[in-house]
Design a protein around this nucleic acid. Structure first.
Lengths: 252, 252
DNA sequence: CGCACTCTTGAAAGTTGTCAACTCTCGTGG
DNA sequence: CCACGAGAGTTGACAACTTTCAAGAGTGCG
């Protein structure tokens, strides 16, 4: 069969994982190499104290461990935040698919609009290390993930609650905007305040009060699952948000 | 000239950088690709609030950006904590050196004793991406750095001050032990309490009180620049420290 | 309708930060 | 040799931030 067919077939038949189920569990030997087609997920780690620390979010178009660096088990797991459609790739599929997609512009991987992202990120997956430009692309993804991780460390270690939550919202805004999921400064954010608490290293009660302060300052509106950025410049200024680390295109 | 000669020459003539000077500055276009031969350094980021957040420590044997991923400027800088001897490698040197060191066991890069580390990590530097096993090695280094970054995020986001500082000491202990810099559960740690504060996301006053509590519990002794681990099992248990992320050999 | 989950609120307690001063060490210059 | 000054560590009192506990209100789904 043609490789394009395989790609189409793989994308056409994503796995469906319900909310709050592990997409990839800790010490998962099968490898979690996947692409998120639809829905939100997060990477997390449980402490022996019982506390949970979220270390990354996955939004549509994002991938996880495509280079199989964590194949032999890792120190964290990935859980679906909403019901999720994702494509899991086997080593065989990655290898087969890579044969006919030798040249993918890795700059494209920095994401543009949602439709192209799904395809583009998928294409990324079809690449093997045999193709230098592919290896290049995977390395870029890795660097963005690392820069984001460092940004989170700086955020949690260096900013008080209000700025911390504001920064998180700014990041989600830009990332979702890049994949076309922001409409009129408004986007769906299916993250509970408990999740935000375990992301920011705060208690859920304090997250709640912090969000109310952001509302009071007229920066955001948050009702149910829908977040609206009312004053992006002020919100970004408050958070000291510099989106360069995300390596997104100027617009989308 | 033979590659071995170049390697020797490079190692024999390290740069000397005084304490509190930048080894690599932000937006440094020259690229910071280096190996630390002697001394301590840290990677950090300044916030507009004036706060400094340390995101990583470099100890003897550690490298920085050998794969030149941050060549075009990054969001952070690297500063010498003590006076430092380091080897800076140019692109040309890395290229030349890579030609005759095709097969380096990447497992060795996980560090053993101090002498071999200096050589081994140096050898890592002499590798280019043309050699698959080298690329492999650089990727392993990257993964360890990323896992450490994630560990710090979990540490700062999820643990109170006492556990946080304890965890930091546990990590330094294991990393320095791996390069032979721990003698009788005691090692030199030229990190001020101000530095620790900006590492752990605490104030220096609170770091001071936290250290006193660790002393009071009989876990450590810290005088001047010398830290002694008095009760490693208890300290590690307190910190919930699992050294697996460092990927160190069993002993050294 | 009722359960489960999420959001919100108040009060009290605990943790951490700020400010300010004092001590200690160490290296330099008189 | 001693005085001095800079950097680092220590301490106390107080303020600010954040958590915990507990309870009630809102929301969506079977």
């Amino acid at each position: 069969m043609a490789d394009g067919d395989l790609l189409d077939r793989v994308l056409a038949d994503p796995d469906l994982v319900p909310a709050r189920a592990d997409l990839v569990s800790r010490h998962d030997r099968k490898g979690g190499r996947l692409i998120l087609v639809d829905g939100f997920a997060y990477q997390y780690r449980m402490l022996t104290s019982g506390r949970r620390q979220i270390t990354a979010y996955l939004v549509p178009g994002d991938s996880y461990d495509l280079d199989a660096a964590r194949e032999n088990g890792s120190d964290h797991a990935v859980m679906a935040l909403t019901s999720v459609r994702s494509v899991h790739l086997t080593t065989a599929e990655v290898a087969v698919l890579s044969l006919d997609h030798p040249s993918i512009d890795h700059a494209v991987m920095a994401l543009t609009s949602v439709r192209s992202v799904h395809l583009t990120t998928a294409e990324v997956a079809v690449l093997s290390l045999d193709h230098p430009s592919i290896a290049e692309g995977l390395r870029l993804v890795g660097r963005i993930e690392e820069a984001t991780l460092r940004e989170w460390l700086v955020n949690i270690g260096g900013r008080p609650a209000l700025e911390r939550i504001a920064h998180l919202f700014c990041e989600l805004d830009r990332r979702l905007h890049a994949v076309g999921l922001v409409d009129q400064d408004r986007f769906e954010m299916p993250i509970t305040q408990y999740d935000l608490a375990d992301t920011a290293g705060l208690s859920s009660v304090h997250v709640n009060r912090t969000i109310q302060e952001l509302r009071r300052q007229g920066l955001i509106a948050l009702t149910g699952r829908s977040l609206t950025i009312l004053d992006r410049p002020s919100l970004q200024a408050l958070a000291d948000f510099q989106p360069r680390y995300l390596r997104l295109r100027a617009s989308a």
